[in-house]
């Protein structure tokens, strides 16, 4: 048995300190509150302990002043922490613009990672320190959750959607990755490591293996294999909307309204094209739900993204 007893996980991301600050502030305030109650109870219980069974204390009428006091003070404290927690949440969920892209596929019971350049890993993700990393995640089966305690981040990976999170490691090292959403018998085996490296080391690591194709190149092949090209490429046979310059743009929809052509919408349009159709087109495309794997889907999206306009993470390289 290892006799160590830590109270905090390592702090290895840009947000870890902020999360800990909120945690400690809450510990302090709730500690004070708990001690206050405990002291009052102990003092009252001893001071007014029953000395004889015949004791009949005089009743005390309530006090509006006190009631208002102990309603308003907790209310103000609660609202302050609400505001603090919410603003921190925006920091945790808003991805910085210059983030590096990594694609994650979760399946029972492993984590698959793909770097844009094409290098793939399983249950281990190598990233440079000092650079925000944006994770585009999809699940092949049930709900999983990407959790790195040292980074204080967690995001459910929900099948049928694309889940996004980000982090920026601050110190080189190996940090535990857990699946935090119960996903079956080997849930606790769905763990891995995030390896944060100095940028130069990371660049060397990335080149060490002949990467083969990049994500977008693979996506381009799938695009042809599944016959997408026949309808979505210019020329006489074009029957679907053109895809050049689509990613990140707002498109008008049949029946009114617009939608941002992001990962979520592209996924939906591939898996169930009838859901929201681009203005001027009708539903000719078959649904590809179940026909493309999650990995192929993410490759396809990477390809569509590479057709511009440049989204976060792409112009940097």
């Amino acid at each position: 048995m290892r006799w160590e007893l830590d109270l905090f996980p390592e702090r290895a991301s840009t947000v870890a300190g902020e999360v800990d600050a909120l945690y400690l502030a809450l510990c302090l305030v709730s500690g004070l509150f708990a001690v206050l109650i405990a002291v009052l109870i102990v003092v009252f219980a001893i001071k007014y302990r029953r000395r004889s069974e015949a004791d009949l204390p005089r009743p005390v009428s309530g006090s509006l002043g006190l009631e208002i006091t102990w309603t308003v003070i907790p209310l103000v404290i609660a609202l302050a922490f609400f505001a603090w927690g919410s603003s921190l949440y925006f920091t945790l969920t808003e991805v910085p613009r210059d983030a590096l892209e990594v694609v994650v596929v979760a399946k029972r019971w492993m984590w698959k990672f793909q770097h844009l350049e094409g290098r793939r890993e399983i249950n281990e993700l190598h990233v440079p320190v000092g650079r925000p990393i944006r994770l585009t995640m999809a699940s092949e089966d049930v709900i999983h959750s990407f959790f790195v305690p040292a980074f204080r981040i967690k995001r459910d990976v929900v099948p049928g959607r694309t889940s996004i999170t980000w982090f920026e490691a601050t110190r080189p090292g190996r940090y535990r990755l857990f699946c935090a959403e119960y996903c079956g018998a080997r849930h606790s085996g769905m763990v891995g490591w995030i390896v944060a490296m100095a940028p130069a080391d990371w660049a060397r690591w990335l080149r060490a293996e002949v990467a083969g194709e990049s994500l977008a190149q693979r996506g381009a092949k799938i695009f042809v294999q599944h016959g997408c090209a026949s309808c979505h490429r210019g020329g006489p046979s074009q029957r679907g909307p053109a895809l050049e310059g689509l990613f990140g743009r707002r498109v008008r929809l049949e029946g009114g309204g617009t939608v941002l052509a992001d990962e979520q919408y592209l996924r939906e349009s591939i898996e169930s094209p009838g859901a929201r159709i681009v203005a001027g087109y009708s539903l000719l495309m078959p649904a590809y739900r179940g026909l493309v794997s999650q990995e192929e889907l993410l490759d396809l999206i990477a390809y569509l993204r590479s057709l511009g306009p440049a989204g976060p993470g792409t112009e940097a390289r």
């Binding site: 902020e18 909120l22 709730s30 919410s86 921190l88 949440y89 945790l92 204080r152 935090a180």
Partner: peptide
């Protein structure tokens, strides 16, 4: 401790 879980940014870490 319910307050810790109600605080959005902190819940991300302690959830589940």
């Amino acid at each position: 401790t319910g307050l810790f879980l109600s605080a959005l940014g902190l819940d991300v870490h302690v959830h589940d």
